[in-house]
Design a protein around this nucleic acid. Structure first.
Lengths: 195, 195
DNA sequence: GTCTATAACTGGATAGAC
DNA sequence: GTCTATCCAGTTATAGAC
């Protein structure tokens, strides 16, 4: 891996774990054993690194949901796979919160110009979920339901981070999965859709 | 109002709007027309200001829920009053998120020693909601339900802050109120409790 | 004695020249 | 890739105002 990509990867990790503002060039440089000057060769400003981190997250997230499409037989299972991200990444989320939510929250307080770019991460999930609902012929309420699931995962992440309670996470993930079943039961058609 | 209280008030506002770390003494001093050095007559460190801000928030929050107890006739109405805080403070929440959630999130990233103190704000709401459920003779699930409502409000705040969509907030507040009705319908007894 | 202002110190940050 | 400049944060010391 080249130096530029290494910088982006470590920055990505630190921005998540320590926050954007609280991460310094020195933190990143020390971790990679590179000099400040080398740094400056690849990126002019810290904001530029943030842009690249967001770009990479968008790419990785897109790959992730693409895989969810392939790995699951139907939209219900896919939506549950989304919700269960809280279980798969439980320890990280309890320690640092949701990578998307906490970044958007921080950039909002900083009134940072990359706010809209970070929000695209939310929109990617939202758009993907709308598509899942569409596949079982839920159209009118598709966006409302997608936003609802997005809301739930964010709420879970914030509370999980503050309370660090595994049982809470498991209970609420189960709740959300039940909610998916109920909505599909009530509004869904073509439920065995295998596309 | 004395200088000390003025400092706490402005710090409270800025910690919410700009974040704790991103708020400098210069910001506060400029706003109050006092000198930076003057701070240290009243507080030993910046962390000490944070402690006082949290103390004040706890006091104000306690007063708020005490009023909710007086102003509403029954637990269902009280719980809905809690949820509707998202409507009453809509514009602030869309701009800055939830004061409690965003503070806890930030302190978590900073690994700040005041984390537990800030979490007490969550616990205050949680305890209060448990009491509401108890009043309609919901005991076993009281805590689960309280955490669920806490989760929903946090999720709403994060998404409201990122998407800045008033309709989303209204829809989800209505959803949460319906959820309260359903739970009480299913599990509650002594529903007309006027205590 | 209590409060406030001024100025200087220290460390760490980004930025940038060489 | 090293080394420096510059800035700004939190902090401290001290002197003055009420």
């Amino acid at each position: 891996m080249n130096t530029r990509d290494k910088i982006i990867n470590i920055a990505d990790k630190f921005f998540y774990e320590k926050g954007f503002e609280n991460t310094s060039f020195a933190d990143i440089a020390a971790n990679l054993n590179i000099s400040r000057g080398n740094f400056y060769h690849h990126f002019k400003t810290k904001d530029e690194i943030l842009d690249e981190v967001i770009k990479q997250r968008l790419k990785n997230t897109q790959n992730m949901v693409d895989n969810w499409d392939l790995e699951n037989e139907n939209p219900a299972a896919r939506l549950k796979t989304f919700v269960k991200i809280l279980i798969r990444n439980q320890s990280k989320i309890m320690e640092f919160g949701c990578p998307v939510g906490t970044l958007c929250t921080e950039l909002s307080k900083l009134n940072h110009k990359a706010q809209n770019d970070a929000n695209e991460l939310f929109i990617l999930f939202q758009t993907w979920m709308v598509r899942q609902f569409n596949q079982i012929e839920i159209y009118e309420n598709a966006n409302k339901h997608a936003m609802h699931l997005l809301m739930r995962t964010q709420g879970m992440a914030v509370i999980a981070n503050a309370f660090r309670d595994e049982n809470f996470v498991q209970t609420e993930v189960d709740n959300a999965c039940s909610w998916i079943d109920e909505i599909i039961e009530k509004e869904g058609k073509n439920v065995r859709n295998l596309s």
